[in-house]
Design a protein around this nucleic acid. Structure first.
Length: 274
DNA sequence: AACAGCTTCAACCGCTGTCTT
DNA sequence: GAAGACAGCGGTTGAAGCTGT
């Protein structure tokens, strides 16, 4: 599938926006809305590409943007949501009114990542072992392994009622892990200081959940998603919904991925250790 | 004061998913 | 069903500001 370049490179401005450009964009969107980002800069008289306009509007000019430092509550929310959703910044942003995915991503990389507790130490060890195993098998049977892994997940849910087991640690795929080489460990051993420490510990013991789990479970590979969804559907009546955490919205399994996982994980945290 | 190293964050890039033709 | 167009997402970059020496 061919794809035209985002914008004609010639003649379009790049770099920081000037107040004048901001004003033009705001005025235009206020009067005309933003039905077509690609056509917008031309119509508004801006020498920018549509993408740039969209980004500027969403991340900076939108009237409902909440500016200023993140509150500790917001930070805790981001940390928790990141545990659940991984690097799905837009999904996280959707749950933090007035905050943008870009902002959240920046805050995560500049502040929150460093605060991750030592709880990841254990996971890192396991992860390393798993990575070695995976590397050795990668070439021969990557697909099969993934399928098997998914089946293990489902099996786990069937038997233990939660997919958040440490045994489901997966390979590192996110930039965070890659960049820091398992640096989810905090050298100072500082732990997140909040009222949910109990829960975090529980995570550590039993519900350990890192990006990798979600990035694989929620992998962008459609076939995997479909497989997983199908598997959940297969077991939904038999086993899965016997668990209270599913009882409220069983239909969500097949509908909304992120909401489902959010719900899933939230509720799993409310449960006593299974 | 000057410099180097570090941090922050706005913006860009490239890819994917979805919709339309 | 294939191809094109577009929106949206996440990773990355680089300039500006900050801090330490």
């Amino acid at each position: 599938m061919g794809r035209a370049p985002c914008c004609e490179k010639m003649g379009l401005k790049k770099g920081p926006w000037t107040p004048e450009e901001d004003q033009i964009l705001i005025n235009y969107i206020n009067t005309n809305g933003h039905n077509n980002w690609r056509a917008l800069p031309k119509q508004a008289g801006l020498l920018r590409c549509g993408k740039s306009c969209r980004l500027r509007w969403i991340n900076y000019l939108r009237p409902d943007i909440k500016r200023g430092n993140f509150t500790s509550e917001e930070e805790e929310t981001i940390i928790k949501l990141h545990e659940m959703l991984g690097n799905r910044w837009s999904a996280i942003a959707a749950r933090l009114p007035g905050r943008t995915d870009n902002e959240i991503k920046n805050v995560w990389h500049t502040h929150l990542k460093k605060r991750l507790p030592a709880q990841h130490n254990n996971n890192t060890k396991k992860k390393k072992n798993l990575e070695i195993t995976k590397k050795s098998n990668k070439k021969s049977s990557k697909q099969r392994q993934e399928k098997e892994k998914q089946e293990e997940e489902v099996e786990h849910i069937k038997t233990e009622g939660s997919p958040m087991s440490p045994t489901t640690q997966c390979s590192s795929s996110g930039s965070i892990n890659n960049k820091n080489g398992g640096s989810m460990n905090n050298s100072s051993g500082e732990s997140i200081n909040n009222e949910d420490d109990g829960n975090n510990n529980k995570d550590d013991d039993n519900l350990a959940l890192d990006d990798d789990f979600w990035s694989e479970v929620l992998s962008s590979d459609n076939s995997n998603d479909e497989d997983i969804a199908r598997k959940f559907e297969d077991i939904e009546c038999s086993d899965l919904f016997q668990f209270p955490l599913f009882s409220s919205s069983p239909s969500s399994v097949a509908c909304d991925g992120i909401d489902f996982w959010y719900d899933f994980y939230s509720k799993s945290l409310e449960l006593p250790q299974l």
